[in-house]
């Protein structure tokens, strides 16, 4: 384990995790060029939550901003993890995929437009079941259309993490940026515990949960491209770096054989400790970069 860091520099940083979804989005743009689309005063809220006696949010927990990042057009879509676990409903999902589709249209017209997704989400909003599922499918298909023209950069900073269908959205994006505090996984820890038992995964053991699904392990497994500190400026710099780098030669989700062979090589007949898994994935990464 690495030594805890209590340096002056670390304490002086501006935490990205502590920012609201709106402020997270805003801080990525060049000199305050970000302007919000379909914001809270447009009141495009969920029509389904009040019917189930749940208080809605004026922006349905999805912030869309357009502006300039690293000198290029970009759209940033930020999910508010604090509202309904950052879940994707009909409205937040429609805002998400429409923003990506508009970016795609701009690219087709020759205006290069990049996308940055700030994912703090448990996936589909269960109260809007089928509509939420349809929305996530649309988001994934919109990302796949857009990534041919410009990079789609997913950032998961924490501490909600990125789970369910939205982990697939992160999986098909061009680049994935994580902090140590972030988590990424298809099934959330509670779901695994409920389905496979406490012996399989103890969801109440936060240290175990983070050491399996957290940024350090996921980066080492090659599921994230970079591991960053919880630092707004460092994250903004990383986003600019990937926008400048452009579309990757091969997307992660196109490397089916590479990732399938890794899963096949893992002996799942026994329990692996997080450290063993880390060492195994590290070895695999060096063997097959």
């Amino acid at each position: 384990m690495s030594e805890p860091i209590f340096s002056r520099e670390y304490l002086k940083r501006r935490s990205f995790i502590e920012l609201s979804a709106r402020d997270r989005a805003k801080c990525l743009f060049d000199s305050q060029t970000g302007r919000e689309l379909a914001g809270p005063f447009d009141r495009i809220e969920s029509p389904w939550l009040p019917l189930q006696n749940i208080v809605p949010q004026a922006d349905d927990g999805c912030v869309v901003m357009k502006g300039i990042i690293g000198g290029q057009q970009a759209v940033v879509i930020a999910i508010a993890g604090a509202f309904q676990g950052g879940s994707i409903g009909e409205v937040s999902g429609a805002k998400f995929s429409s923003a990506l589709d508009l970016a795609c249209l701009d690219n087709e017209k020759g205006v290069r437009t990049n996308a940055v997704l700030l994912l703090e989400t448990g996936g589909v909003r269960l109260q809007e079941a089928n509509l939420g599922l349809a929305a996530v499918a649309e988001i994934i298909s919109s990302i796949i259309s857009l990534r041919k023209f410009a990079p789609v950069i997913s950032v998961t900073a924490g501490t909600v993490g990125c789970f369910g269908g939205m982990a697939l959205a992160a999986g098909v994006s061009s680049y994935v940026v994580m902090t140590r505090e972030a988590r990424l996984g298809l099934n959330g820890p509670e779901v695994i515990e409920q389905e496979s038992g406490l012996e399989e995964f103890d969801a109440s053991d936060r240290s175990l949960v983070w050491s399996i699904t957290g940024g350090r392990q996921r980066y080492n497994q090659g599921l994230a491209d970079v591991l960053v500190d919880d630092d707004a400026e460092q994250i903004a710099q990383t986003v600019r770096h990937f926008i400048a780098r452009g579309i990757p030669t091969v997307h992660r989700s196109e490397q089916v054989d590479r990732y399938r062979s890794r899963v096949a090589a893992l002996d799942t007949s026994r329990q692996w400790s997080p450290e063993e898994l880390y060492a195994w994935a590290n070895h695999k990464r060096k063997e097959q970069p």
Binding site: F41, Q57, A58, G61, A80, A82
Partner: peptide, 18 residues
């Protein structure tokens, strides 16, 4: 001018003022 603050998260609220 109008303003918007907060989030509808546990123990919190959002305020829209126009």
């Amino acid at each position: 001018k109008r303003s918007h603050v907060g989030v509808v998260g546990s123990g919190d609220l959002e305020v829209l003022l126009e």
